[in-house]
Design a protein around this nucleic acid. Structure first.
Lengths: 221, 221
DNA sequence: ATAATAATTTAGATTTGTCTAAAAATATTT
DNA sequence: AAATATTTTTAGACAAATCTAAATTATTAT
């Protein structure tokens, strides 16, 4: 596996995440994701195509090649292992780990990462509940759905919160819900679309429609 | 404290190490250390001078300002804490830690480093025996050790000779070693604990275990 | 189907960090 | 102290990664 620049790695990672949702990725989408101008995207797409990391024809969008996906999974592996390390060993809170891991992920020593993995006890998910790819780039595939759509009695992990207002965070904190919290839907009430939910061994509690709408979970595997 | 590029940090660190030995650092010295061309050094020196990290007048060499030293000590702190982590927690051998730490040291989150320090139990020396600067950049300045215990490639200054016999003095005189002589250990042989040592630009020469045992040196960061 | 709009690419500029080759300053030797 | 050698700096070029503005292609609406 060759080495890629920090910049190239950031593009590859962003494409990977976008194509998980959309399939084919467009120039503007990627520009928005990376906070760069569309012209910069085109430049980099040419370079990554030349390196055979993606399929790209002018004006047709792009998607990672198999090689590109392998590279992406390597970066994601590093990112998530560092996130786990930061939360588990250095006692960072779940909302602080991402930014630091963004930098650590670009240190690309395979030996470092494999030993870190071992030191951490081969964790399978990061503090946000996202699965960590193994040495061979294999990753547990799980689907992200809105909490409103989660089937009954399926254990799922909170993976994303759309609204980032202090109000929602206050409420989530009060209910002890964060990224990574395991949830199970026990009842739904059609009158107000509220639901009763269980988290670990806590007693069942209620979540309003407005709140559930903003919580996304991952389940299945 | 502002942020500096990886490249700037590497220059600052290299100057710090060179000026520990020589005081004023020259363009060619630094070029050799960094495996870069002298022209590149001059370019960077102008930039670092503009940022007030060093004192520099054309043709006169350069040395770090107080601010520059503070930056250097921050980088060295990060490097040595990562080295300790790699050796202690990830079970890297002492000769493997340096290269990986060269990359990790450039991740410049203060919170990360202070929490890492705490996680490691506030170690005072790295796996090579070099002191680790604290949060405020304070570093154990010079430590006196027996020449037998001096790490490789560390410039040290002879500070004391235990035996005062005419025999040892004759030998020291012959080898041009006295109090104040700068030495660097290049090789050690476990067979007879003899070592090869360099003093300034003289060719490498050999010192026996019996002699090394009686020589004490001081060395810094 | 054609015009208007939006998305994408191209062309050319900028910054950072590097280089080579030539010029200038300093140091050394005779 | 002049000539020679060494060191350092300058001048100009190049690659990577970005940008702006203009041109091109694709999409949408009439």
């Amino acid at each position: 596996m060759l080495n890629y620049s920090t910049s190239e790695e950031n593009y590859i990672k962003a494409i990977y995440h976008l194509q998980q949702q959309d399939g084919n990725v467009t120039t503007n989408e990627l520009a928005a994701e990376l906070k760069a101008k569309p012209a910069s995207i085109t430049d980099m797409m040419k370079k990554l195509k030349a390196k055979k990391l993606l399929h790209y024809e002018p004006y047709q969008g792009f998607s990672l090649s198999n090689e590109g996906k392998k590279v992406a999974l390597g970066i994601i592996r590093r990112h998530r292992l560092w996130e786990f390390f930061l939360a588990e060993k250095l006692k960072f809170t779940w909302d602080e780990v991402h930014e630091v891991a963004e930098h650590l992920e670009h240190v690309s020593s395979k030996k470092l990462i494999d030993k870190l993995d071992e030191f951490l006890g081969f964790p399978r998910v990061d503090p946000h509940g996202d699965p960590i790819p193994d040495q061979d780039g294999k990753i547990e595939t799980s689907r992200q759905v809105c909490l409103l759509d989660l089937p009954f009695n399926k254990t799922a992990v909170v993976s994303h919160v759309s609204d980032q207002s202090t109000e929602i965070l206050e409420l989530l904190k009060h209910k002890h819900i964060g990224i990574g919290t395991k949830l199970e839907v026990k009842k739904k009430f059609s009158f107000d679309n509220s639901m009763e939910v269980k988290a670990g061994r806590q007693p069942v509690f209620t979540i309003s429609e407005q709140l559930a709408k903003n919580i996304f979970v991952k389940y299945g595997a």
